[in-house]
Amino acid sequence: MATQRTVLPRIGLGTFRLKDQDVIDSVTSALSLGYRHIDTAQFYGNERAVGEALAQSHVPREEIFLTTKVWWDQLQPQALLDSLEESRRQLGVDYVDLALVHWPSPDDEVPMADYIGALNQAREQGLTRDIGVSNFTVAQIDRALSVPGGEHLITNQIEVHPYLANRKVVAHCQDKGLQVTGYMPLAVGKVMDDPVLQAIAEAHEATPAQIALAWVAARDIVVIPSSTKPAHQQSNLEAMRITLSAEEMARIDALDRGERIANPDFAPEWD
């Protein structure tokens, strides 16, 4: 019998590059507006501040879907478990809802079976409710799903925006029953100046950012835009109610130019 997999909230708040009071204000505002999905990572250096915002919030812990990620230098099994225990402490919670491997181990320095197995051990120990990966290629997804514990993975978090549709990886993950979470859905603000998105936005009395988010969401991809301004956070939430026509979707599809923003020197060989 197939395991009943957790369904991720359609939109979440990304916290990359937000620190200290900025991230506290951002998370506090988002929760007050109705966001229930907060995405952080060990690498962001803001888990403690995110935890402060959660502690100050009147939203019950069980209503919040909280994601963090293990950095690639913590993938040895014991290091992974210790780092997630530290994340839990920093966040001030009994568990996280989703723990991701932030990047695959560069050059397979740590065997995938080791760190996927440890990630699943964290799930079994109650450090996290669910597990997933981030920035995995098609081949890496297949490997991850094939090792012990891999059957419990629920998502691959990857860069997705109108200039990087990432079709091959998206289709493969969805075909394998994995949800796709799209980060940087606004291409770090570049979508605001796009004439195609501006024209479609005008027709919907919306903003180009809302149109970009609606396009990602229409592909059955979870979006986690980052924003510190309550007005922008509200606008991002409202984007989930926009329905684009097939013709509008096709016009946005045509913007894809393989423009990758997150591409560090330890990244895998992309599809």
Rank of each mutant, 00 (worst) to 15 (best):
L145H: 06
L237Y: 01
R251A: 15
V110E: 03
A187P: 01
D175K: 13
P268S: 14
A165Q: 07
T181P: 00
G149K: 04
I116H: 10
E269W: 08
T228G: 12
V23L: 07
P148G: 11
V223A: 12
L81E: 12
L75S: 04
A199D: 15
H152V: 01
A144C: 12
T228F: 01
Q56R: 15
I261Y: 10
E85R: 15
Q174D: 12
I64T: 11
R36K: 15
E62F: 03
T40H: 05
L98A: 06
T15D: 08
P225A: 12
E205T: 14
H102N: 10
G132P: 03
G12Q: 04
P106H: 06
V50T: 07
T40D: 03
V110A: 03
T67Y: 00
R17Y: 02
A55P: 01
Y183N: 06
L186Q: 09
S29G: 13
L13H: 08
A246P: 02
I242N: 02
I116P: 14
G45P: 03
H204F: 04
I116L: 10
Y35M: 06
D193R: 13
F16K: 02
S83K: 04
V59Y: 04
Q21E: 14
A239H: 05
R123W: 09
W270M: 12
A212H: 02
R257Y: 00
L81T: 12
C173I: 10
V133N: 01
Y44M: 02
P230H: 06
R123I: 02
R241T: 08
P264T: 10
A217R: 05
L66M: 11
A171Q: 15
L145C: 03
T207W: 01
G126C: 05
A217H: 12
E269H: 14
T68W: 00
Q90W: 04
Q74T: 03
P148F: 11
A2I: 13
P111F: 05
P185S: 07
I242A: 07
E159Q: 13
A99D: 12
V50E: 06
A187M: 07
S83F: 02
S26M: 08
M112E: 09
A99K: 05
Q56N: 15
V223G: 01
R5P: 00
A231H: 11
P111H: 08
V93P: 00
L18T: 01
T3A: 11
L255T: 02
L237K: 04
P195N: 07
